[in-house]
């Protein structure tokens, strides 16, 4: 993949930027120029919530060639607090501990390394929300 393509995808892959329809309020990710719900062209960029909950997940054991070194890995269908759904790897967890409804948060991670030049692609992955306060409370 080319460097310009990485740049173009930075908003939606680094910062979870989507589109909100100024006409009907619907939100989409990735961005859309036309609202499929109401047909409006009046769309604005919106930064989506970095938190959501797991709806369903799978463990990819036979991976595409460019992800082979990561397998097995978890891919989840996640509903963000805005109501938008995204697909993402779920990291920093044991698949046995995952269940629908689990709270997750976005984190920026390395996705793939491309070509002989070794261009590194970054993007969002999700991890279980770390509940520092709860843990601190238990420790006291």
């Amino acid at each position: 993949m080319s460097v310009p393509k990485f740049w173009r995808e930075i908003p939606h892959k680094y910062r979870l930027v989507g589109s909100r329809c100024r006409s009907c309020g619907a939100i989409y990710h990735p961005r859309r120029p036309i609202c499929p719900r109401c047909g409006s062209r009046d769309m604005e960029d919106v930064k989506l919530s970095h938190r959501g909950r797991l709806l369903a997940f799978t463990v990819i054991r036979r991976a595409p060639s460019d992800m082979a070194d990561l397998r097995p890995y978890v891919v989840g269908l996640i509903e963000l607090e805005d109501g938008v759904k995204v697909l993402s790897q779920v990291v920093d967890c044991d698949p046995a501990e995952l269940k629908p409804g689990l709270e997750l948060e976005a984190t920026l991670r390395r996705i793939r390394v491309h070509g002989p030049a070794g261009v590194i692609e970054y993007g969002y992955k999700f991890r279980p929300v770390i509940k520092w306060e709860a843990e601190a409370g238990e420790g006291q």
């Binding site: 990735p30 369903a56 990819i60 060639s65 992800m67 891919v75 993402s88 996705i111 692609e121 993007g123």
Partner: peptide
């Protein structure tokens, strides 16, 4: 086979799927 799995995902919306590493069978699993 891993290259077949990668190519098969080119028929989906790559912006929403590719960086997750999900395969067609992964989507079917969900």
């Amino acid at each position: 086979a891993p290259e077949v799995a990668r190519i098969q995902m080119l028929f989906e919306d790559s912006r929403s799927t590719f960086h997750s590493g999900v395969t067609i069978y992964g989507l079917c699993a969900l």
